[in-house]
């Protein structure tokens, strides 16, 4: 095959890969056995969508480490992940391989406090809980100091 033919084939393979849909097995590998995985637009350092940014900020507040995948870099992932969870929008958050929700669900769980429990289920202690406990302890000690 000449050089031109090879580059044409290479382009074709790239395009085919870009427009195919990631299979369930391929996505299983990305989410199974991992505490927290996020599928988003852009990267955590530079989200390309306000909803993705909101999820990143929530996870940051809770001090949670996670794996992030940029769906704008991979159209097959963008399509595949929607079919995988039967959820039509990005971002999507997974904990221990289970789909938890998108931006609205994360935001509401964060506001209600349920998110702290959700993290506990996968063995993560939220930084907000640690902070709260520290403050309680300081308060108790201050009370003791007053009475003692």
């Amino acid at each position: 095959m000449d050089k031109f033919g090879r580059s044409l084939l290479k382009n074709y393979v790239q395009i085919a890969r870009f427009y195919s849909t990631k299979s369930k097995e391929e996505i299983d590998k990305l989410v199974k056995g991992k505490n927290v995985v996020v599928f988003m637009k852009g990267v955590p350092e530079e989200p390309r969508c306000g909803f993705s940014n909101a999820v990143v900020q929530i996870l940051r507040m809770h001090g949670v480490k996670y794996e992030a995948h940029d769906v704008l870099k991979d159209e097959s992932l963008r399509q595949g992940i929607k079919e995988y969870s039967n959820w039509p929008t990005i971002p999507q958050v997974y904990m221990n391989g289970e789909f938890v929700g998108g931006c609205d669900v994360m935001l509401q769980m964060h506001q209600s406090g349920d998110l702290i429990e959700e993290f506990e289920k996968v063995g993560i202690k939220s930084a907000l809980l640690t902070k709260h406990e520290k403050e309680q302890k300081q308060k108790e000690e201050a009370e003791k100091g007053k009475t003692g």
Binding site: P47, R48, C49, G50, F51, S52, A54, L72, C103
Partner: peptide, 11 residues
């Protein structure tokens, strides 16, 4: 109101 857009090429 929903969070502000951050680019995303209209996607």
């Amino acid at each position: 109101s929903s969070p502000n857009c951050r680019g995303g090429f209209g996607k």
